[in-house]
């Protein structure tokens, strides 16, 4: 059955929102990163993610939307209208938590975009191909750090393990397949993420072993971000990010 416009739009916006929210989180490191090289790295990753979000917002609007531009989608939607994964809205915490979050997400994203690059929607396939390459680069960066932190000092090991333990319950949501996802797969513009789980697990295990970190046991997994039920952190992020457009509607530079 062909997917209706609204479902297609919602599916694409989910992917865009993941990148927008994580991109914004990474940008919060600017001015605070541990070294100048790392500051550039985090800012570059942020730029990749926000650029990808922009391409996806434009594509969603062009193919299934009601004519809003990316700025309207980003600055004028409230938290419950955002449909990103809860994992990506988690506060940056310490450097270990930011790296573990990026690692867990990039290991998923690189496989996701690779799979989506086969879609019959040409423009989306092109966006996905680029994203697959960039996500693999982000994964390499985060993996390198995770090994250094985990197999580093007692302090860095403990912080990396604590971050992993804290974030683990947010990883299940990446592989949930609800009706919107199923419809997108049926229509050839989505990815069966449940099928990506084994590959993701293998990547995670490989790096965690090198990092001398312990993979947490799968327990209760939290979800809700993709249907607009967020942690309190997203609202605070949007309050900061959207302030200018809320205070001065339509302002441009």
């Amino acid at each position: 059955m062909a997917m209706d416009r609204e479902t297609r739009f919602n599916y694409l916006i989910r992917q865009a929102d993941n990148n927008m929210v994580l991109g914004h989180r990474m940008s919060e490191w600017i001015g605070k990163a541990p070294t100048i090289e790392e500051e550039l790295a985090l800012a570059n990753i942020s730029l990749d993610l926000i650029g990808l979000a922009r391409s996806l917002y434009v594509h969603a609007e062009t193919t299934a939307g009601d004519g809003r531009d990316p700025d309207q989608l980003v600055f004028l939607r409230d938290a419950h209208e955002y449909t990103n994964l809860l994992l990506v809205e988690k506060l940056n915490g310490d450097f270990a938590l930011t790296i573990v979050r990026q690692f867990l997400y990039s290991a998923f994203a690189s496989a996701y975009w690779k799979a989506l690059s086969e879609t019959e929607d040409d423009e989306l396939a092109g966006i996905a191909t680029k994203a697959a390459h960039e996500s693999a680069y982000h994964l390499r960066h985060a993996s390198g750090w995770l090994v250094r932190l985990g197999d580093g000092t007692g302090e860095s090991h403990d912080r990396a393990q604590a971050a992993l333990n804290e974030l683990w319950m947010f990883t299940g949501e990446m592989f949930d397949m609800d009706d919107t996802d199923q419809a997108a797969v049926g229509d050839g513009v989505g990815v069966d993420t449940a099928a990506l789980k084994d590959g993701w697990s293998a990547t995670v295990d490989e790096i965690l072993t090198q990092a001398t970190l312990t993979r947490p046991a799968d327990g209760w997994m939290i979800d809700g971000g993709r249907t607009g039920k967020h942690t309190e952190h997203l609202g605070h992020m949007l309050a900061d990010m959207q302030f200018l457009q809320r205070a001065y509607p339509g302002q441009q530079w």
Binding site: N44, S46, L47, D48, L49, I50, G51, L52, R54, S55, G126, I127, K130, A131, E134
Partner: peptide, 9 residues
């Protein structure tokens, strides 16, 4: 034209 990177400013 085509972008080099997603976030090419």
């Amino acid at each position: 034209i085509t972008p080099t990177y997603s976030g090419c400013p």
